[in-house]
Design a binder for these strands. Structure first.
Lengths: 222, 222
DNA sequence: TTCTGTGAACAGATTCACAGCA
DNA sequence: TGCTGTGAATCTGTTCACAGAA
C-alpha cells in the first residue's frame, strides 16, 4: 500500500530486513551473556551456536549493522550490544500498559522479563469490578476507562492485551484512541488497527497446534 | 540433514508448506465461529477478512488441502473444519506435561485454551519443594523426577517448559529422555534437541523488542 | 590460518493475472 | 456475475562460495 523501499532515508540506517530484526533480540541476549562472562570479542560461529542458526546467517544479519567485525577475531561485544540495543529502541525506556487481569494477565504483570529490557509497566487495567482495586504486579488495578488519562500522564507507548477474544477488538480500539502505537495481543483473534499502529500476536493455542502438526507428521517419517 | 522432500509418501497428503500450516489454526478458528453462527459455506474473502490476510493467500493455502470450494459459492465449513483438524492432529487427544510452576507456569496450567483444542494437561512438575504438593490448574504438583513414570503411564507426547533460562536445557533433556517428542519452550534460550524432536519457542521479551523496533522506526516514517 | 563480508545461486512464500465453473 | 484454482512473476530470505584482511 505505502511505498517504503523508495523513500529517501538518512544514510545512517539501511532498512534492516524483518527476519533479521526478529533474530536481533536473541543475538543481543547471547552478547550480554558473553559480556557478563568477560568476553571482549565474539565470533559469528559462537553466536550461531548459542542461537541455533548458521554462522552465515549471523554474518549476513550483522552486515546490516554499522558495527564491523575484524577478520580472524570476531566482533566487539560491547559495540554490538550498543548497536542492537539502539536499533531495537532499548536505549530509551518504554512505558507499557496491561489490560486484562485473568490468569495470563496476572502472570504477565509479574513477569520479570519486562524491566531488564527497559519496559516499564505503568498500569494494569480491567473492566471487572471484582478485580479493580486489587494489587497485581505491584500495581493497583484500575478501570479501563482511565486509560486515556494514564496514557497522557505517563506517555504510554505500548499496550499488552490479555483479555478474552471477543473483548480484544474493543480494548485495542480504546488503546489506539488513547494514543498507543504498538500492541502485543495475546487474544486469539485478529484485530484491525490503523496503518500507523503495529500489532503483534502471541497465541499459545496456535503454537500447540503447530507442534501437534509436527508430531503427526513425524510419526509417519520416523 | 535428512532428505524429506524425496521420500515416497501416500498420495493422500502432499507436503503442506510450513507457512500455510502456521495459518491453519487461525483459519480453523474462523471456521468454527462461522459454524457456530450457522453458516454452511464461507468464501475465501470472508476468511481472509477475519484473519487479516489476502483472499489470494487463503485460496492458495486451501489449495493444499483435499477439500475443494465451489465457484461462486465458497467452501463447505464443516468439511474444512474436519480437514484442518485432521491435518493439525486435533482429532486425537494430545497429552501435555508442564514443567515450571512460576507465574507463567501457573497461568499456563490454568489456561482455558488447552482443553477445547484437545490438549489434555496430565501433570505439572517442578523441582522446588516449596511448590511440590500444591495444587495448580486442578493438578497436584509433582517432582520433575517423576516425569519418566508419568510419561510412560499417560503416553505423554508434548512438554511445556516454563522454567528460568538457565534451567531450560536440563528440563528439555529430561523430557527427551522420557520420550516426549514435541516441546513448547517459554524460556528465553535456544535448546538443543535430537533431530526427531520438535521445539517451538515463545519469547515475550523478543515480541516486546520487535514492537519496540517498529515503534522507533515509525516515529521517523510518520 | 581464522574469521569476516558479500555477490551469486537457490529456495520459499506472496501476489498477480486470469481461465473456468456454478 | 461471483468466487475458485493455479501458473507465472515477484519478492524475501537462506545458503553457498570465495575473496580478503588480521
Amino acid at each position: 500500500m505505502t511505498q517504503r523501499a523508495m523513500t529517501a532515508r538518512p544514510m545512517t540506517e539501511r532498512a534492516i530486513p524483518p527476519a533479521t530484526v526478529a533474530r536481533l533480540p536473541s543475538y543481543r541476549r547471547v552478547l550480554m551473556d558473553a559480556a557478563d562472562a568477560g568476553q571482549r570479542t565474539i565470533a559469528s560461529g559462537a553466536i550461531a551456536e548459542a542461537v541455533g542458526v548458521h554462522p552465515d546467517q549471523v554474518r549476513k544479519d550483522l552486515s546490516h549493522l554499522a558495527t564491523r567485525g575484524t577478520r580472524g577475531v570476531g566482533y566487539d561485544v560491547r559495540a554490538l550490544i550498543a548497536e542492537t540495543s539502539s536499533i531495537l529502541g532499548l536505549d530509551e525506556e518504554r512505558t507499557v500498559v496491561l489490560v486484562g487481569v485473568g490468569n495470563l494477565g496476572r502472570a504477565l504483570a509479574a513477569y520479570e522479563g519486562f524491566a531488564p529490557q527497559g519496559f516499564r509497566l505503568v498500569a494494569v487495567l480491567d473492566v471487572d469490578d471484582a478485580v479493580i482495586g486489587s494489587e497485581v504486579g505491584g500495581l493497583r488495578v484500575a478501570h479501563l476507562d482511565t486509560l486515556p488519562q494514564v496514557a497522557r500522564r505517563e506517555q504510554v507507548e505500548m499496550g499488552v492485551v490479555a483479555v478474552p477474544g471477543p473483548a480484544a477488538q474493543a480494548v485495542v480500539d480504546t488503546m489506539v484512541a488513547a494514543g498507543l502505537r504498538t500492541v502485543l495481543n495475546f487474544a486469539p483473534v485478529h484485530v484491525r488497527v490503523p496503518d500507523d499502529v503495529a500489532v503483534r500476536r502471541v497465541d499459545l493455542s496456535t503454537e500447540l497446534q503447530m507442534l501437534s502438526f509436527l508430531r503427526s507428521r513425524m510419526r509417519r517419517d520416523g
